[in-house]
Simulated assay, not measured.
Amino acid sequence: MSPIIRKLSIPEFTINAPVLVDVYIDAMNYDKAIRDTRIEVWRRNSQNPGFTAVAAVIDDQVVGIAYGFNGSPDHWWQHQLRRGLRQQGGPTEEEIHIIYDYFEVAEVHVQPGFQGHGIGRKMMHELLKDAASSHAILSTPEIDEEANHAFSLYRSLGFSDLLRDFRFDGDQRAFAVLITPLPLQHSL
């Protein structure tokens, strides 16, 4: 079970968005009713500067997807970051620099039956290897004692806390916002 990790062109990503979103829905155990909306959001995201996407494929089946793009002051997500940093007493000078020079890891998902086998790690290395930003930032739902594959992966790649127990506008769940310098310093 050795996956092929490959970069997707923007046309490949947009054409295959339904299959890729299905991986996301399965991995996150979301209601399938969100499928069409997420497909459109993902297709719009592919137009962001610095957009990069990778897929993990085993026996012609997509089992993982990761994508991201350069952070931008115009993006909703960066507005949320700035709000969170203000709420915790910042942003500091260093945080100001970082939030204007980062690669946003928007999504990283592996089909449940394939999690815990290094696929996410391989996708993250491929996704971030050519990112021109000084840092990568991502968010992940808070889990008691960080006891899931996602947190284990992010910590092993050197991600540290930027915000904890943060609530994005429109979502009642608590999130951790994590950051790591680029290039990644942790090997496969």
Rank of each mutant, 00 (worst) to 15 (best):
R6M: 11
L188T: 14
L162P: 03
K7S: 14
H75T: 10
A136T: 13
L178H: 04
D169H: 09
P91E: 12
R38G: 00
G120S: 08
R155L: 07
I137C: 09
W77D: 07
V108N: 05
G84N: 11
V108I: 15
I39T: 05
L157F: 10
I4R: 08
D60S: 05
Q185T: 10
Q78P: 00
R173S: 07
S46H: 00
L157Q: 15
F159K: 10
R38S: 06
D171Q: 07
R83M: 13
N16Q: 14
L188E: 14
D101N: 06
T14M: 12
T14Q: 15
H186V: 09
F114N: 05
D101L: 02
F13H: 09
A150W: 10
Y67M: 09
E95Q: 15
G118L: 03
Y30W: 14
E40A: 09
T140S: 13
M124H: 13
S156T: 13
I179E: 01
A147C: 11
S152F: 08
H117K: 03
L81A: 07
A33W: 11
A131E: 01
G90N: 06
M1F: 06
F13K: 07
G64L: 10
G170A: 12
G118P: 11
I99P: 01
D101I: 01
T52V: 15
P49I: 03
Q87H: 13
P3D: 01
R44L: 02
L163Y: 07
I34R: 07
T52K: 14
D26S: 11
I137Q: 08
T52G: 05
S9P: 09
E146G: 04
A66D: 12
T37S: 14
R155Q: 12
V63W: 04
I15N: 08
Q111L: 05
G90C: 09
D74V: 08
S72G: 13
L127T: 04
I39K: 11
L81D: 08
F69M: 14
G90P: 07
L182A: 03
A33P: 00
E93W: 01
T52S: 15
W76R: 12
P91F: 14
Y24Q: 13
H135R: 09
T52A: 15
R38D: 09
Q115N: 01
Q115G: 00
L162Q: 11
Q47S: 05
G158H: 11
D36F: 01
Y67Q: 09
H149K: 12
H117V: 01
E145H: 15
L178E: 02
E95H: 10
R167Y: 04
T37Y: 10
H97C: 13
S46R: 06
P181M: 04
V105I: 04
